[in-house]
Each structure stands twice: as structure tokens, then as C-alpha cells.
Design a binder for these strands. Structure first.
Lengths: 338, 338
DNA sequence: ACTGCTTCCGAAAACGATTACGGTCGTATG
DNA sequence: CATACGACCGTAATCGTTTTCGGAAGCAGT
């Protein structure tokens, strides 16, 4: 491993000058800078991360926290891979690197986050899968770590967030179904204590109430966020009496299993029961075509990164004046399922 | 941020003793150790990562390199999340953390890897999506970084690897199809320059040859590793003349689109054309049921981690004697598609 | 009282980078 | 000629740990 010392010896100058040359400081002759850059390239020198960040107090990495395990995320990794890509393109312009902080399913997320921030692992954090009351927000706030969350929470410490417009989705979906004559609309509640579940259900209730309808407790179904979960809940739905005539759901993974489960139970999607959901690469080939909501994941990632930079002291100058909270719109793809 | 200095001042002892107490060294009175541990807990002290790894020369993190972007990974949604989970459970026993190193789609993977290893970011690396000739192997070998790859390559620097048994899969699948009377078998070539494509195709050819059959070049189809790619290639297959009577493919994402594409083209999977593929959560609800190969992703992750530890000098004592190369078996799930 | 062992702890040197500070040149200015 | 100044670069302190080394204190044996 070649360090700055070797590089300095090779060039027969001091390490101070080498460092200054590499970091683009003013006090260095252009000719020397050129020589340093050249030699660094030749010897394959890259500043050691630990040394640099110990001195600078910052690491140059942004962490995206996510939980591993087969049934944890409500999103597939195709989801995150696209978001990551958007985040990266912005961060790389500032010489920042994105890494995914992987919290294993048998470790407490709060404890995990605490450990990683106390270690000083990342300069900033992106949180996802936000809960109804998310203690992680307070933790990061207390430690004064810049962060942004993909998703709102009742817990609010003033950080920026971006959240998908689940309320808008509820509104459009419910109104569409009502217009089509449905009076008995059910929903599938996203798993766990995710905040989006409450936002979505509440708005559904409101819109239904505006039309003199109600969301029956019997028509709120729970399912694990997986294909198998969708299949399982399908049978519940099929056998519930009275059976809802339409289902709206926010999880894009469930729907594949849901379709199959309903069919197996003799309830034809789009005919015996209307379905409105979220787009994913998997849903595009369902038949009947799923009526669903979609968004540009890459753009979402870009926006996440930009808003995050706006709260990072060392970078914010470039991004002042951004609105700090964004409700990310989704667009409706009209299918024949509902 | 409370450092070891504050902790030492608080306890009125030296930082050396604090460090020794925390790291479980022998030379420290049990009573003092207890006091230190207690105070550390109380003040919420966690050793600073940069300082520690600068001194120790190791970071305690293992990186799993992957490329971001919507159409990069050849694996399905839950694939990596499950593998990660397995890796984690082993690593956490050794106080190692797993992070995903996210290489953006517009950066050269080799350059990215070079940068991160030179920075000393991770103690060890797990590589995936190995190419036919993978230069990253030589890079890591040159820098003497312990690593393991999920997948073989013609490039071999003596590192351990684990690879799915694509050859076994080819053998079982082809023989099964031949037994069912198929003489015109086609395959879908995995995208890009992934080594598994060659392994798989070569073995298919061999097995066919053993039975006096050949793999026609016209029956090797190329597709992007996405649902849409599967849909697109379906039309190619349907319109090829002569059309193969069976298709074997190793990519589990493609198959959803493939089914739909074939149906839309009037070619019924399992009836007009046999299909054998790989299991994923998405494939389990296809009809006719997909004949496919499956494996325990979590166990795969566990094994990856164990074999990686066996080449990490600081940890290998626990795992000596492991075979360093593993062909990971897959089991056949008999469906009605082929 | 002296020596020889433990047992425990403090002092200080690393690790590899960044950066404040000061020193050495030339050159220009009075 | 003396002084001032700017351009450039070297020296050394610093970040927070770990770890080596040696010292102090206590105790046992002679």
C-alpha cells in the first residue's frame, strides 16, 4: 500500500506539499502540482481513508440504511438499485460515496444505527422504511448527523424528507373506484408499523367519507410484504363476507401473489374484484393489466441526494433554497384491473 | 462526541487503561474494567472508527460490491437481501460489519474497486457478477486484500469462490427435456460477459452431444436481464423458424416476461413450448407452474462469509480446513412447464 | 534489607493524512 | 543597500485510537 510518505520520498519533496498539491490548495507551484499528480497516478496512490477522516473529521461517505432479510423491505431491490443510481450521480459530483448500511434482521435497527453513527462511519445518512414514530430520527438529530428520510414519520426533528404521495394515490384510486360504482372498497395494510400505512388508510377513509361511504374494518386486510403474503391474503379476501368489490394496495410486491391467489379462489381480478396497486417491473405483465401508480425512481434518488446535501454544512451552499419536504407525485397507469 | 480522552478524564485514569479494559486485554484489574465498562455505557462512548482503524490497520468492515442501476443485476428482488442476511449472521459473530459498496452505473467497476481498496475502506471484499475474465480478481490479489467471489472466472488468483451449480442445472434440465422427447432445445444466454453464461452453455452443448443432439446457434437467444427483456425475447423465440420445443434459462427475472410474451404470441408455455428456469419468489405463482431450480440464499450467504473468514488472517483460525471452492447445489422443483 | 515475581497502570510512540505556522528564497521598492 | 513582500515549501502539531514498554507497588523468599 503506497502512502503519502512514499509518494513524497519518490518526488523528494515533503508530505505537506504533496497533500496540498493533491487537495488543490493555492500555495503550491503549478509545475510541482503537475509532478505530484503524475506520480500519484503512476504509483497508484489513493489517500488512506482512516488517516484522512481522522484528521478531517469527516469520511466522505453517505450511508443508506436498510434492513436485510427476505421479508423485511417492502420494496424489492430493483427498487433500491434504481434509487441508489440516482443518489450516486449527484453524490459523485461532490466526491462523496454511497454505501448501503446493512442492518441484519436479528439486530435492532436503532442499536445498529447508534453504533454506526457513534463510530463516525458516515457523514450523512439516508433512512428508509420510516415508522409511525421513528426513534432513529431523534437519534440522528441528537448526534447532529445530517440526514434525510425517504418517508415521513410523526416524529419530526426538522430534517428534510421525501415521501411518495400515498395520500394522492389514495384519493385518485378511491375516487376512480367510486366513479366506477364501487361501494365496498377494501385495502391491504402495509406491514408492520410503517407510517405510510396510516397516511394511506386515513386518506382512504376521508375520501370515502366525502362520498358517504366508509372503510369497513373487515375490509382492511393484513399481509406480509412478499409474493407469498399476497397469495395468502387473497384467500382471506376471497372468503370474506361480504367481500369487497375492489382492493387498493400500496405494496408492489404483493400483487403478483394476490392475482394468483384470487384466481385460484375463483375470484377473477378486474372482473369479480377491482384492483389498484403500485407499478413494478413485475406488475407490467399481469393480466388483466394492473391499474397502478408509478414514478421515476432514479429522479427520486437524485432529489434525495440534493436535499441531503442541502443540510450538509460542507456542501449546502450549492443547494440553498430547496424546499426541504417533498411529496413525490406518482402517475396513474390505467389498466383494466380497476 | 465523547472520545476515549473524556472517558479517561471522567474515571481519572489513563486512556491506555481505558482502551485495554474495553478491548478485553489481560493486564487490567477486574474492578477497574467494570468501572470502565459502566462509564462507557453511561457516557455512550463508542470508539471512533477512523482512529481505531488507523492504528489497527483494519476497519472491521467487509464490503459487498454491487453495481447500481435498474438493469444491472442478474438476480431477482429478494436475492441479495437474503444472501446479505446470511453473511451478516456470520460476520456479526466476529464483530465485523457488512456494507454494500455501490458502484454507480456510470463509473467503471474496476476503477471504483481500485479506489475503495486503496483507501483502505474494507478489510475484505465479496465480489459478485463475475465476468468471464474478471480483472478485479487480479486487482484484489495484487493489493493482498482477502476476498471471495460469488461466481467463478477464468481469471484465477487462488481465492476461494462459491458458485451456483449451473453445470449441474444444465445437465439435469437438458436430460429431463430429452427424456420428455425434446430434440430442439434452446437457451437464453445471460447478459453481458458473465462467466456463468459460458459454463451453462458449454455444459448444455456437452449433454446434448452425449445424446447425439446439438445446440443450434439459432436457438441461443439473448435478452436483457429484466422482465421487459424476457417479454422481448419471447417474441423472438416465438417467431424463430424452426422454433425450439423447449427453453432453458438461468435468469430468474426474465421468466415472468417470457411467459407473458409467449402467451401473447400464441405460444403456450408448458404446452407449445417447455420451459425450465430458476426459482424466485416471483416465479412461484406462474401457471403452468415453472419447473425450476432453487437454493437457500441465506445458507449461501453463510457459506460465503465462512469461506471469506478463512482467508482473513485475523480470523482464519476458526475456519481452517474448509474447502475453498464450492459448487453450490440447486434442487429441482418439478412444475408442469417442462 | 535485598532480590525476584506478579499485577496493574501510565507514558509515549505509532498509524496516515491535513493544515497552521514559519522559514527561505527572489524580486521589487524606497 | 536595506527592507518588505509574495511565492513556495518544510516542520510539526493534530485527529482518536491501540499497543509496547517500563515503572510502581505489593508480596514472598532468603
Amino acid at each position: 500500500m503506497t502512502g503519502i510518505r512514499q509518494l513524497a520520498d519518490y518526488l523528494d519533496i515533503s508530505i505537506g506539499t504533496v497533500s496540498r498539491a493533491l487537495n488543490g490548495k493555492a500555495d503550491v507551484n503549478e509545475e510541482t502540482r503537475r509532478r505530484v499528480l503524475e506520480a500519484a497516478e503512476k504509483l497508484g496512490y489513493v489517500p488512506n481513508q482512516s488517516g484522512r477522516s481522522l484528521r478531517k473529521g469527516s469520511t466522505g461517505v453517505v450511508g443508506f440504511m436498510m434492513q436485510t432479510g427476505p421479508e423485511i423491505t417492502s420494496q424489492g431491490d430493483a427498487f433500491f438499485m434504481s434509487v441508489f443510481d440516482g443518489v450516486q450521480t449527484v453524490l459523485s459530483r461532490h466526491k462523496l460515496d454511497l454505501v448501503a448500511l446493512l442492518c441484519s434482521s436479528n439486530e435492532d435497527p436503532y442499536a445498529y444505527l447508534q453504533r454506526t453513527v457513534a463510530r463516525g462511519f458516515a457523514d450523512a445518512i439516508i433512512l428508509s422504511a420510516t415508522r409511525r414514530n421513528d426513534a432513529r430520527f431523534e437519534l440522528l438529530h441528537r448526534h447532529d448527523i445530517p440526514f434525510i428520510s425517504l418517508g415521513r414519520s410523526l416524529t419530526d426533528v426538522g430534517q428534510p424528507w421525501i415521501d411518495l404521495d400515498f395520500e394522492g394515490m389514495a384519493e385518485v384510486a378511491i375516487k376512480r373506484l367510486i366513479k366506477a360504482g364501487h361501494k365496498d372498497i377494501g385495502i391491504i395494510w402495509p406491514h408492520g408499523d410503517l407510517n405510510l400505512g396510516y397516511l394511506f388508510a386515513d386518506r382512504c377513509r376521508e375520501v370515502l367519507a366525502e362520498h358517504g361511504l366508509a372503510l369497513s374494518e373487515d375490509h382492511i386486510f393484513r399481509a406480509k410484504p412478499s409474493e407469498a403474503g399476497g397469495y395468502a391474503v387473497a384467500h382471506e379476501i376471497a372468503s370474506r363476507f361480504p367481500r369487497p368489490s375492489a382492493i387498493v394496495l400500496v405494496n408492489e410486491i404483493l400483487v403478483t401473489g394476490l392475482y394468483k391467489g384470487l384466481e385460484d379462489a375463483g375470484v377473477k381480478p378486474g372482473k369479480d374484484i377491482a384492483i389498484i396497486g403500485r407499478y413494478s417491473p413485475q406488475t407490467q405483465f399481469l393480466s388483466p393489466a394492473l391499474t397502478c401508480f408509478t414514478l421515476s425512481l432514479r429522479d427520486l434518488g437524485i432529489s434525495l441526494a440534493e436535499h441531503l446535501l442541502s443540510v450538509m454544512p460542507a456542501y449546502q451552499s450549492n443547494y440553498v433554497g430547496q424546499t426541504s419536504r417533498v411529496i413525490w407525485p406518482m402517475t396513474l397507469i390505467e389498466g383494466t384491473s380497476g
